[in-house]
């Protein structure tokens, strides 16, 4: 209990700005996870987002190597990550549109090759670089500048989702019909993929690759069980994402474990619990129906 009181004390204290920043990072990233995660879930492109977020490690590794060896002094890992994210989004998007049957293979190849390139370049980078720090990140290291970047991305993503909501909903629900209505479904798909890629890059530098992919899918998946429509799924997923981030932060502080991993475990437990509850309710319902129906 002392630890818990200590956390809330630190949250309000000006002496611990990193705790407050982590709290606001959780709040701001929840909007991205909620809105983009719902689109990724209903479009069934979580695998694509997973591949992009892991391939980013290749860009980070190359940027760290070029910077540390003095070949491109001061090159930020984020630049390498953005290049790799957009490149992998372009390759995966093109293959997905042109050759559906090869989509799975290409997604897995990009996922594995990107990560391997990252590990190889980090191994050759002078000094010690731990790849796992990029896999799980550290939400407690977020600066005020990072928060501004997150806020800008929130505004852009929420505006795009509001402005093109009917087109996004139609192309996710029934792509053929959307095409007949004149919606540029390929452009919508590539736009979703590109925005997701950029959001993944920003978010993974703050919270790590594993947490990004978990939070893009688990809050939206959990909200999907009760949502009436895509808009309420986005709102529900945002609330779930914030709840998971905040509880991960609290539990991480209280029992002194990495916050990113704790957030993923809490989100995963909630999602699996909800899925199990749903399954049991369905079985009961069909069992009751069976009992009521005449022999």
């Amino acid at each position: 209990m002392d630890n818990l009181a200590g956390f809330f004390g630190a949250l309000g204290s000006p002496d611990f700005p990193f705790v407050r920043n982590a709290f606001f990072a959780g709040l701001l990233s929840s909007v991205l996870f909620g809105v983009l995660g719902s689109v990724v879930t209903v479009k069934r492109i979580a695998g694509l987002a997973g591949a992009i977020s892991h391939a980013v490690l290749g860009g980070i590794g190359i940027a760290l190597y070029l910077s540390a060896t003095g070949k491109v002094p001061g090159l930020s890992p984020m630049v390498g990550a953005i290049v790799f994210a957009l490149l992998s989004a372009l390759i995966i998007g093109t293959v997905s549109l042109k050759s559906k049957q090869r989509e799975d293979t290409v997604i897995q190849a990009i996922w594995a090759i990107g990560m391997s390139i990252g590990v190889l370049f980090m191994a050759k980078t002078p000094g010690y670089t731990d790849p796992s720090s990029y896999l799980f990140g550290n939400i407690l290291l977020i600066s005020s500048q990072d928060l501004v970047l997150l806020l800008v991305l929130d505004v852009v993503v929420v505006f795009l989702a509001w402005r093109f909501y009917p087109q996004i909903e139609a192309s996710a629900f029934d792509e053929e019909f959307a095409q007949v209505r004149g919606i540029p479904t390929r452009a919508v798909f590539l736009m979703i993929l590109s925005v997701t890629a950029i959001a993944v890059v920003l978010l993974q530098t703050f919270v790590g690759i594993v947490m990004v992919i978990a939070m893009l899918t688990l809050p939206a998946g959990t909200a999907g069980y009760t949502a009436k429509n895509l808009a309420s799924m986005m709102a529900g997923a945002t609330l779930y994402a914030f709840f998971f981030s905040f509880s991960g932060l609290v539990v991480g502080w209280v029992v002194d474990v990495p916050v990113g991993a704790m957030v993923v475990v809490i989100a995963g437990a909630f999602f699996l619990g909800r899925a199990a509850g749903n399954l049991i309710a369905k079985r009961r319902k069909s069992h009751d129906k069976g009992e009521k129906s005449p022999a």
């Binding site: 009917p166 909903e169 629900f173 029934d174 019909f177 959307a178 209505r181 919606i183 540029p184 949502a227």
Partner: peptide, 15 residues
């Protein structure tokens, strides 16, 4: 997640 009414409104969606 979508209601019947929202599916039908899709028939009016523009490009």
């Amino acid at each position: 997640p979508i209601t019947v009414q929202e599916v039908v409104r899709m028939g009016l969606v523009g490009s």
